[in-house]
Each structure stands twice: as C-alpha cells, then as structure tokens.
C-alpha cells in the first residue's frame, strides 16, 4: 500500500492562531515495515506529539524556543513555526508497535506492518 496517497491534507491556514507548516518527509518501505522520516529542525524532543486516532497518524511538533534570544535579525530566511502532518494508515500498520526516534532535528518513525500485510514468498516446486 502506498502511504503517500493516503495523506490527509488538512487545511491549516488560519489568520489567527499558531502557525503550522507541513514538514518535508520521506516515506519508504521495507519487507517488514514502513519508515517515515520528518525534518523538523528547532523542536525539543518533549514538544513532539505523535498520535494515531481512527487509523490516522498525526505528528505535531512546536518550536517553543527561539534558537537565539536578544539579538537583532540581519538576514531572515526561515521562520520558526509548528509542524503538523498526517497520514491515513488504512489498517496495514500494527499501531501498538510504532517507534519514534528523534535526533538532530530529524524524526524517524518505524511502523511495523501487520502480519497479514507482509510480503510472503511462495516457492514453486518443480517436479
């Protein structure tokens, strides 16, 4: 199953309220699991919120602290904002065994496939 096609595109645009953007993300598949990797720079580990509700995986993260404080900005190329993105898992993932690892601004989620979804090899006996 292609997880990419099951992205829940949320309308996150508001004129008031906290600003969220969809982070860049990689999704790839191995025999036993799916991996989703998000680039979410500037976020502390405790501010990441991952939840699965009704087979929809949602990752939300917020930048609570500016990287530097008490300085004037000379060159401004990126904003700090929150990140949110969600994918529909369509019953192919064992949601109780999802693992997350956050390192250097990259969040890596490991989603093991359900037993019946794994690729099975069938050997043909030649007689």
């Amino acid at each position: 199953m292609n997880l990419r096609k099951n992205e829940n595109i949320q309308n996150v645009e508001t004129t008031r309220g906290y600003s969220y953007v969809a982070p860049d993300c990689d999704i790839f598949e191995t025999d036993g699991e799916y991996k989703i990797v998000f680039d979410i720079p500037g976020v502390e580990k405790d501010d990441i919120n991952i939840k699965v509700e009704k087979e929809v995986l949602t990752v939300t993260a917020e930048c609570k602290k500016e990287p530097v404080e008490g300085y004037g900005c000379v060159n401004d190329e990126f904003d700090l904002s929150g990140y949110t993105r969600s994918f529909n898992l369509n019953n192919v993932v064992d949601t109780t065994k999802i693992e997350a690892d956050y390192k250097n601004g990259t969040l890596e989620l490991t989603l093991p496939k359900k037993e019946e979804q794994k690729t099975k090899e069938i050997k043909i006996k030649v007689s």
Binding site: R4, C25, D26, F28, E29, T30, K35, V37
Partner: peptide
C-alpha cells in the same frame, strides 16, 4: 537509507 530504495515519497 538510500540503498534500500522503495520510496513512496522523497521530499527531504
């Protein structure tokens, strides 16, 4: 993960 290519999405 470059070697194990079975990408569904590659934005990073």
């Amino acid at each position: 993960n470059e070697a194990k290519t079975n990408y569904h999405l590659k934005e990073r």
